[in-house]
């Protein structure tokens, strides 16, 4: 499975967390994601996601003047979005502890075999 496929659904939650921190515009979000270590995804994929989240009323946007060039679209969380973020964090924590558990068991048994040989 490619990283892009694994990221589906996770990036949404990460975007919500980034927007929660402070009002941001698209390029800033992509930079933030990259600084956290998401290197392999195409930055433009955040726009379809933002459109969907806006349709689902998780986020809202306002146009603001910028010093360089045309107006930027800044995103902020709605109450519904905050709730979704909370749910995402919970779901992620359950998921990651399960996945970690599976991997831990796997390395123990694998390690055991290696000891025997």
């Amino acid at each position: 499975m490619s990283t892009t496929q694994m990221l589906k659904g996770i990036i949404d939650g990460c975007l919500l967390a980034i927007i929660k921190e402070k009002e941001v515009y698209g390029y800033e979000m992509a930079e933030k994601l990259e600084s956290y270590g998401f290197h392999s995804f195409s930055e433009g994929t955040i726009y379809p996601l933002l459109m969907r989240m806006q349709k689902e009323e998780l986020i809202t946007s306002t146009l603001k003047k910028s010093t360089a060039g045309p107006k930027r679209k800044y995103y902020s969380l709605t109450a519904k979005g905050e709730l979704e973020l909370k749910n995402f964090i919970e779901r992620w924590q359950n998921l990651q502890s399960s996945v970690n558990e599976v991997i831990r068991q796997y390395t123990i048994t694998k390690g055991g075999h290696q000891d025997e040989t």
């Binding site: 390029y27 930055e43 060039g69 107006k71």
Partner: peptide
């Protein structure tokens, strides 16, 4: 026009930072 404006801004800032268009749109 809305989404095109956003992408234009993104592409122009990305290019300023030396990123290729493939990095943005795949």
């Amino acid at each position: 026009e809305d989404v095109i404006n956003e992408l234009e801004i993104h592409l122009s800032e990305a290019e300023k930072n030396g990123k290729s268009i493939e990095k943005i749109i795949g």
